[in-house]
Design a protein around this nucleic acid. Sequence first.
DNA 1: GTCTATATCAAGATAGAC
DNA 2: GTCTATCTTGATATAGAC
Lengths: 189, 189
Amino acid sequence: MPLQKITRDELLARSLTVFRRRGYHNTAMSDLATACGLFKGSFYHYFESKEALMRAVLEWVQRSLQEKVFSVAYDEALPPAERLGKVLRRLNRALLSAEGGCIVGNTTLETAKLNPEFRGVLKEIFDQWLAALAHLYGSVHPPETAARLARQTVAELEGAVMLSQLYGSDEPFREGYERALLRLENFPV
Amino acid sequence: MPLQKITRDELLARSLTVFRRRGYHNTAMSDLATACGLFKGSFYHYFESKEALMRAVLEWVQRSLQEKVFSVAYDEALPPAERLGKVLRRLNRALLSAEGGCIVGNTTLETAKLNPEFRGVLKEIFDQWLAALAHLYGSVHPPETAARLARQTVAELEGAVMLSQLYGSDEPFREGYERALLRLENFPV
DNA sequence: GTCTATATCAAGATAGAC
DNA sequence: GTCTATCTTGATATAGAC
């Protein structure tokens, strides 16, 4: 039942959920159109191709994460531990506990090897994620250690989402989340 | 230039490398045929469908890992630390340092949500992987801790492969590898 | 067991009416 | 801005010759 009108941001948001669940190559323009209440021909009024749409989705994710999540790591009004907790909670909601898992991790494994443009945006996202965590861990650890803990945390969270998705259980992810917090307490978890 | 003859195992091995690099949905039967020196019609002499082929590939991976890698964890002729080193080195060669990353992780994120048959084999692989590591960590830690460390290690290695693939650097993976070893030394890494 | 040829279908994309 | 209709391509899969 086609809608009368839809904003570009709404298109991106709905496309995101479809890509996250079905993956990039397995998603058809008709899937996206249906999810947006459009007929598939109409989609090309907004985006010239499926690839351009995915690029726009990833760029939108990158901007949202930087503005609403990673930026919290640099908010000097809060103590580092609170910042980290806030970042992790927001990551969890925005990225990691959604149906279909993590659009960033999914798309990285499926397409980053093959598509340089996707790879570029995905690297930006991971760069900003790593920088935010390294900045926080840097309040307790020397810079080298902080950077290493950031890599460990990101790897662990992405791997934990994979296991949580596969087993249909929150446990692996919750464990990763707890350990990410402990790394600010001078525990070398 | 088509070969004269090819064994089923050779087909599986070559198909595996193609699926690992290109992903499942993005791989065409013609890609697989070319990699095997066959014309695409000939492929259906061995496998009734692309899905059946992928299933066979995953089952083959599962058997190989259990026989050649995970089984080492239970070899009582060696001390646990040596067993763990051996398991990790073999995992590294078989699964994690190959071009295109890890077929198990890639296929999990791309297809496990959508295809119950793939999900079954993939779960088996992760179950056996987790059990092998938990068994080894169990030589130093209580069972609950050992199981948790196994989950942490698997998650971290899969996430590290993702980052290593994306950045074209071995570092994230090597770090995960080192930490996996330290977890047997009573360090809660 | 492998090849050629082909059937069938779905997907990405475009054109033009409303 | 959305719809209908259609073009084109490429993919899975099959049939039958060699």
